Amino acid sequence: MQYININLPNIIEARDNHYLFMRYIIKKKINGKIFNESPPVSNMNKIQKVNGIKSTIAKFFNDEDNLRKVLIGTPDELEVIKNKFLSTGLKKSLKTLMNYDSWIKTDDKATYRNYNAYHLAEKLDIPTCVYCNRIYTKTVINSSGTKITRPTFDHWFPKSKHPLLALSFYNLIPSCSVCNSGVKGSTPFEISTHFHPYHKNLIEDFKYTFSYDHRDYDKFIFKIMPDNKFSEVSVNAFELEEIFKAHEDEIEDLRRIKDAYSEDYIDMLENNILSGSGITLDRNEVYRLAFGVHFQEAKFDRRPLSKMKKDILIELGIIKV
């Protein structure tokens, strides 16, 4: 699991763009053509009746602070407001206003044609799933503008239970379909107990390592070792250990490297293969060429299996840290 650095320029820009576009659409839905200021109270009920949005919800969203919290509030703020408007009638009205299904449409007639899920995914630029780091989640748009593929957006707070947060920036987590729909689904999470890629737990640091039981060299058992209870709960929620068992062949390949080339494999590549070739590569680049993944934790999201391979390589003694 990989945190998203909220201080990166592209993440900040993605958040700000999300707020501006979403604010415009929501204001327009609530107030008709008047979206720079709230309509007169006397006209409120009439406008809401036409747009199918309850006046209670309209008044809530016409408060700029409420609107900001819903659209770009921190995960902590979202947890506080997530249960507003949960009566049947209000939830239906909320779903009309916070229409996620419309936002993911890409046709020219779509409400969000100028800003939809592809625009957010492209700006975020998160190429592998933040939950498993196993599968590419790259956004692909061809030269003619046709939208081909993008990450799915997991609603960390399920939109079925919390429709108010259906379009909240920090509730839209770029992820693979396996983690999003196949494993997590609508399982309820809490900030204090589960990993959130935009929120670092202040009490327990999220940390785990990949390892394997090598008591029998010919038969080994893949395992994940959480550093604390918080990490354990999160790892179990996504069934990461079971899922990563499908990659035991990757560990076998790394073990064969150790057997064939000793623990000085990287040194051999750097000193023997590249010496005299005129190629200038630093140790991180040699590592990436050798194993197809990144060494620096900040770049784990750029290649699938980066964390798993680094942890196993450390355990095997092939790389030193």
Rank of each mutant, 00 (worst) to 15 (best):
H155D: 07
T111I: 14
N51K: 12
R113D: 04
G73H: 12
R255C: 05
H199G: 08
L67D: 07
I57E: 04
M308N: 02
F206S: 11
G52L: 06
R255W: 01
F206Y: 15
G185I: 13
N114C: 02
E263D: 03
S177C: 09
A237Y: 04
F295Y: 10
I47M: 08
Y19V: 09
K29H: 13
L20N: 15
D216W: 03
L164S: 01
S144F: 09
P39W: 09
E263W: 01
I191T: 14
I279Q: 02
G278L: 02
P197W: 05
V293G: 01
K258M: 01
P188C: 07
D76I: 14
T280N: 07
P197G: 10
K147Y: 00
E297M: 03
N5W: 13
F220G: 02
S42R: 15
P163D: 08
R302K: 14
T74G: 03
Y208A: 12
L254A: 00
K309G: 00
L240T: 12
K307I: 05
T280G: 00
I11G: 14
Y170A: 06
K82I: 07
R23I: 06
C179D: 02
R23P: 03
R23T: 11
F295P: 06
Y170P: 01
L202G: 14
D253L: 01
L86M: 11
N62T: 06
P197E: 14
I243A: 11
K161A: 12
L94A: 08
C179Y: 14
I34G: 04
V235P: 10
I273P: 00
H199N: 15
L172I: 10
I6W: 05
L67M: 15
V41W: 04
K184R: 12
H18W: 12
E64A: 08
M1P: 09
G73V: 12
S231M: 13
V140P: 00
T111R: 12
F195T: 14
L90V: 02
Y287V: 05
H162L: 09
S234F: 11
Y136F: 09
D227N: 15
G89M: 13
D227V: 10
M98N: 08
I257H: 03
F157L: 15
K109H: 07
L20C: 11
A110R: 01
F291L: 02
I53T: 08
C132K: 10
I126S: 02
S231G: 11
S168M: 12
V178T: 13
R150W: 00
F230S: 14
Y217C: 05
D264H: 05
D101L: 07
M225A: 08
Y118M: 00
